[in-house]
Structures are given as C-alpha cells and as structure tokens.
C-alpha cells in the first residue's frame, strides 16, 4: 500500500458550539471509529469548551497528576482521554484544541516522530503566518523560542489515526500549578527551573483575539489541504453521548490508572 497525501482526501471541518469535556473525550473515540470504518471522510474538529477541565492522558495516574481538592475548589472537572501523553489544563477561551482524524494510509511506513511532524506541519505554517516561529519538538511538543506553545498526542485504531493538539492561548499559570502536580523528575531535562515558564501562550505572541487565531489557522489548513464545512451527524452525537454514559463518565474509566 502506498502512502496517501493530504490532497488525496476530502477534508471536512467540524466546529460546533461549546461542548462539555466528557463529550469531547467521547467524540474523539466516535469520530476516530467513523473515519477508521470509512463512514466519515477525514476530518478536522475544532473544539470549543463549555467548562473548565483537566484532561489526563490514557496512562497517567489520577492521584499522581491531579490535586483533586484543588480541582474541586476551582470547579474543574477531571476527565481521561483515549490517547497517551500528559495532562492538559483547560479553561474556556484559554486554549485552542483540535483533533485530526486521518486515514492510517497517510502515515504508512512513517516513524512516530515523522507522523507527528507530518500532522503538525500545517499548524506550524499557520503560526509562522501569524508571526510566530514555532517547531515540532520531539516527542510531542510544539515549541517556540519563548517557550512551549502546546502538545500533541496520537493514537491509532482500526484504519485511522487520531492526532489531537492543545495549544495555550492564554493561561492562568498559578491555577494550573495549583491543580496539576508537576514533579521534579518531569522537569529534569526541560532546561527550565520553573514549571510556570514551560508554557508561553499565543495571546501574548500574536496580540490577536482567540477567535482570530482560530480563523487564521483554519484558513491555512483550507489553503494547504482543502477543507469543506461539515457538521456532527445525529448518529455521531448519539454514539458519543452513549460513550459518555457507558465509558468516559464512569468511575471505572477515570480511575482506570488510579
């Protein structure tokens, strides 16, 4: 099988009104399965958050990563996603999060690093057009000279690849450090003494409102790869809601790695 290119596919955009964190977790699984099974064309989904959340990686220990009392005090929900990687601290309007659901054929024969680089290339171009010199920093970071901009995570199942990214638009670093437990070992090879310095948000670097940054990003994707406006189908939403009830919203899933 030969590798397919972005332009070999009919890319669809889903950019819905704000949705709760658990539904976002479930939509990733439902849409990844839909693309993998060929029920949906390859899709870019831009997330809008209805409420704050800490999203932990598939294999992260709930206890080790999150100060549960602090999360409750701040009214922050803790959810677990289907991909590996690290915890993300989300407040509506403070992050730009998106998912790419791509056919596995696009990364056929590529190493993990090559597949991250391939999936990140368009957003790096978008950032460059916004005046930010950014690069993919293995294993899964998006970095700029001023600091980390965001992180990516991938997972594969069926015939599809999920590549999702959260970038910091603005951030309440004090609140983030109150809720996330970021250990010394984690920072040992990052070259920075303070966890708060690890993230440099897009707001200060672009001077644009969040919606403006999103608009420019989507325009870049559209120009490079093609992008048709689509929407979530009834049955996709229903499947995601069922996944919230039966999987993502259950204590068994959240505490799967206690």
């Amino acid at each position: 099988m030969s590798r397919s290119d972005w332009r070999d596919h009919d890319w669809q955009l889903i950019h819905a009104a704000p949705q709760p964190p658990l539904l976002h977790m479930a939509l990733d699984e439902a849409l990844l399965d839909a693309v993998g099974a060929g029920r949906r064309p390859p899709t870019l989904r831009l997330w809008e958050w209805a409420s704050p959340a800490v999203v932990i990686g598939r294999f992260q220990s709930l206890r080790n990563e999150v100060d549960f009392d602090a999360a409750q005090r701040h009214g922050i929900e803790v959810v677990r996603r289907i991909s590996g990687g690290g915890a993300m601290f989300i407040e509506p309007g403070n992050t730009i999060t998106y998912s790419i659901y791509a056919p596995l054929a696009m990364v056929e024969g590529l190493s993990f690093q090559e597949s991250y680089a391939l999936m990140d290339a368009w957003v790096l171009e978008a950032l460059r057009e916004l005046g930010i010199e950014a690069w993919y920093q293995p294993l899964n970071d998006l970095a700029s000279a001023a600091g980390k901009i965001g992180g990516a995570a991938q997972t594969r199942r069926g015939g599809a690849l999920l590549h999702h990214v959260t970038m910091a638009y603005d951030i309440d670093a004090a609140k983030m450090l109150d809720v996330l437990r970021i250990g010394r070992e984690k920072l040992s090879d990052k070259g920075t003494a303070s966890a708060a310095k690890r993230v440099d948000p897009l707001r200060s670097q672009t001077g644009l409102p969040r919606a403006g940054v999103v608009e420019r990003m989507l325009a870049t994707f559209r120009r490079l790869h093609g992008l048709a406006d689509d929407r979530l189908r009834e049955e996709e939403l229903a499947q995601a809601q069922a996944l919230v009830r039966d999987k993502f919203g259950t204590a068994a899933w959240i505490t799967d790695v206690p």
Partner: peptide, 9 residues
C-alpha cells in the same frame, strides 16, 4: 502499577 505520560498501544 505502571503509569506516566508515554504512548502505548
């Protein structure tokens, strides 16, 4: 109990 921010499939 193994945990972390790695990727495993």
């Amino acid at each position: 109990r193994l945990s972390g921010d790695f990727f495993l499939e």
